[in-house]
Amino acid sequence: MSAQADAVPAANVWRPSQARRRWSGWLFYGLAVVSTLMGLVMLGALLFDIFTDGVREVDWHFLSNYPSRIADNAGLRSALLGSLWMLAFTAIIAFPLGVGAAIYLEEYAPDNWLTRFIQLNIANLAGVPSIVYGLLGLGLFVRWLELGRVVLAGSMTMALLILPLIIVASREAIRAVPDSLREGSYALGATRWQMVRQTVLPSAAGGILTGTILALARAIGETAPLITIGALTYVAFDPNGPLDIFTVLPIQIFNWVSLPQKEFHSLAAGGIVVLLVVLLTANSLAVYLRYRMQRRLQ
C-alpha cells in the first residue's frame, strides 16, 4: 500500500489552499467584531448624549415635583409613580396568567391541532404592534368596562401586551426541565400537579422570573398603547391606587420633547435617565435571579 502511495508523483498530490481559507476566516472574524461594535458604539453614544444632557436635571426636586408649564419647577413625580403603579398591577395580572398558560400548554394540553393552533397564535400575538393593544384596551377596558383612563385600564392593556412574552419565556423554561425529573417524580407516586409544583416549577423558576422581568421592562418603556387609552394627560397629583387617572414616564418624556422650549428638552433627557435607571435595575434583577436560581440547582 505504502509503496503505491509513494509512487504517486508529487504534482498529483491534492494540496488544499490554506492561505485563502485562513484569509476568509479572518475576514468573517472582522465582520463579526464590527457588527458587535456597531451595537455597542450606538448604545454608548446614546447613553453619553443623554447623560450629558440629562444627568444634571436629575435631583430630588426633579423626582418630587409635579409637571409644570415652567421648566424650572417641573418634575416627573406623578409620571414615576404612575409607571410604578402600572407596573405593579401589570405584574399582578400578567404573571399568574402567563405562567398558568405556559404550564397548561407544556404540562397538561394534549398534543393536538388545537394546542398547536393556540401555540402558533401566541407566537403571533407577540408580534402584534403595541398600538393595536392600545386600541383593544381603549375599547375593552376604558369604554366597555367603563374603567376610564385609570391605572387599572393601563395595567390590563399592558398585561395583554406582555402576556405572549411571558408565556413564550415560561414555556421555554418549563421545556428545559429534563423529562427524567418528571419521570422520577411520577415514579414516587406524585400526581401531575405535585410533579409540576414540586419538580418542574422550582427548576424552571429562574427562567420564568427572568422572562417575566424582561417582559415587564418592556411594559415600562411602552408608550403608544397608553397614549391610545388616554394616559396622555397633565397629572398634577399622586396616583394612589388602581382607579386613579395617571400618566407614565415615557409619555411625560414625549410630552416634554414635543414642547418648543429648550429647557424642556433637557428635562426630557433627565426623564430618560430615570427611565433607563428603572429599566437597568429591572434587568439586573433578572440577571441576578437567574444566577441565583442556577446556583441553587447545582
Binding site: P178, S180, L181, E183, S185, T199, P202, S203, L297
Partner: peptide, 9 residues
C-alpha cells in the same frame, strides 16, 4: 432509572 436522576434539591 438508567441514568441517575436525583432532583435538584
Amino acid at each position: 432509572f438508567q441514568k441517575p436522576n436525583p432532583f435538584p434539591k
